[in-house]
């Protein structure tokens, strides 16, 4: 048995990687998160397209309004699917084994990485469809990619942290939405601004730096708070 008091950096990374791989393996077999997020996003996308299709959006408003709708679709899909990251561990009683075996911060990192890749997969699916359906062009694709990466990471980090808090509470779904929205609002505002710059072909302001700062702050907060949230 290894010394229970020591966790080297390599062991920490190996633990996080094991959690990430386990979550994706379970996901490929159940397809719960992909189906939930994908169906929710696709349905919302179709509704938005049908509503906007016949009337369109006034030319001057397209770059202002449409990025907001894109991020709302991503946000609500994430809200529908990502609480499962920790709720499923509590409901199926696998959390006990995880508490006894995993280093809490490595567990958080593995779950965060899994959530981030789920969000990326969702964005990769719906963004091209959305742009095509509402006939919107991204004049600065590099900025759009930056917005999706940094904004998606913020969504995943906030969702993972809040999911860990609500997993042990009653009324999980309602509590998740109530706690999640204030955490995510700052990041979403910067992501929307950056997406507007991408579709408008404008030079970005401070949005990239602010998004990175927001992402970094949430990551550090998550790694520091999670051990206290996770254990009795």
């Amino acid at each position: 048995m290894s010394d229970p008091g020591s966790t080297s950096a390599a062991a920490w990374v190996a633990e996080a990687a094991a959690v990430f791989a386990k979550d994706w393996r379970c996901e490929f077999r159940t397809r719960y998160a992909l189906n939930t997020l994908g169906l929710f996003a696709f349905t919302t996308l179709v509704v938005v397209s049908l509503v906007l299709g016949p009337v369109g959006v006034a030319p001057g408003l397209a770059t202002t309004v449409l990025p907001v709708i894109l991020w709302l679709i991503v946000l609500f899909a994430v809200t529908a699917g990502l609480p499962r990251i920790f709720v499923a561990e509590e409901e199926t009683h696998t959390a006990t084994a995880l508490r006894l075996a995993a280093t809490p911060s490595a567990l958080f990192a593995g779950k965060l990485l899994y959530g981030f890749t789920v969000v990326l997969a969702l964005e990769a699916l719906i963004t091209p469809l959305f742009l095509a359906m509402v006939q919107l062009e991204a004049r600065r694709p590099d900025l759009l990619v930056a917005a999706l990466l940094a904004g998606g990471y913020g969504l995943a980090t906030g969702s993972t942290l809040v999911a860990s808090i609500v997993a042990q509470a009653r009324g999980k779904s309602a509590l998740f939405a109530v706690l999640l929205l204030p955490v995510l609002v700052p990041g979403l505002l910067f992501a929307v601004q950056l997406t507007r710059a991408a579709v408008g072909g404008e030079a970005p302001g401070v949005e990239v730096q602010m998004l990175l700062l927001y992402d970094g702050t949430l990551t550090v907060a998550g790694l520091m708070l999670f051990p206290t949230i996770w254990n009795p």
């Binding site: 393996r25 159940t30 009683h93 006990t96």
Partner: peptide, 25 residues
């Protein structure tokens, strides 16, 4: 203990190998 459960969608071997990786075994 009765409150200890492992992942139903993984095989017995996959379950234990996962926890070996967490415990450094």
């Amino acid at each position: 203990a009765p409150d200890l459960a492992l992942y139903e969608e993984l095989t017995t071997l996959e379950n234990l190998e996962f926890f070996c990786r967490l415990r450094g075994a």
